[in-house]
Amino acid sequence: MKAGGYLRAASLADAASARARGGIVIAGGTDIMVKGRSRNIYADKVLVDVSGIGELHLVGERGGAIEIGAACTLSGLCADRALRERLPLLVDAMEHVGGVQTRNRATIGGNVVNACPASDIIPALMVLDASVRTTARTIPLADFFVDCPHCLKHEGMYVRSCLFPDAASKKTVLEPGELVRSLIVPLPRAGSRHLFYKLARTQNIGLACVNLALIGTLLGGVVEGLSISMGGLFPRPCTLDGCSAVLRGTSADVSTLDRVKAALAEKLAAESGALVDYGYKSRVAPALLADGIAAFMAGETLERKRRI
């Protein structure tokens, strides 16, 4: 791949100033190295490698939240037993990203900053009410992204043909020279249950067509708290608050689920002009949401056991 330079940043300050000078942050490289492969988009850019900065690898629990360094690899995080216990939804989502080879290099910070609408991790972080801690501030994840309707028009959303060589500057609110240090993820309420599902055409290691992340609590068989996010559908990551509101206080019976589906369909209709697979996604997303909620209520997963 053609690149204008490669800097192994020794510290966050070094990385931030290199970034301010127009450098492109690289951690695992599983997005950058693919985006840059056959187009000369990084030919005059310096790649700023942050994977060697120690503080970006820290994972710690403080004040009811877990702070995860941006350069932590997905496989490293998935192997962290304590993390799996405390944030099972996040680990579930991360395990669905790519194949083993991808997860051994891809980082949680890289995935968030790349801001692909089909990211598996972002919906999980959204319903977990995560925040992004940068070198300048701490922002709720929900406020971290900017609308990107172009991505929805992008057939297949392939990394290889991504429209944004510098996703950080175009798809997030990061200022020039501002870097992500960590994700801060509050611990879910006691007794929370979750569900994650990645819909794709085969068991291939690529991006989701549509995905679903849910977390919530039940009280006496009735939805007490619930947060829902779906990827592959919207110009900006969001939680489906309208749908959650319909479900709160209900046992998610069939007629309630119909109302939830209708709420999602209405929200999706706004994307009918931009979303390239709208015909299929508008049919499958509400059905997936309803099936996911039903499984969630029953304490089950949507994963189908194969080879029976």
Partner: peptide, 14 residues
């Protein structure tokens, strides 16, 4: 770790 060599920048291998 198993990694795809086509995605690993040689410069990162110090």
């Amino acid at each position: 770790r198993a990694e795809n060599a086509c995605l690993v920048p040689a410069a990162s291998l110090e």
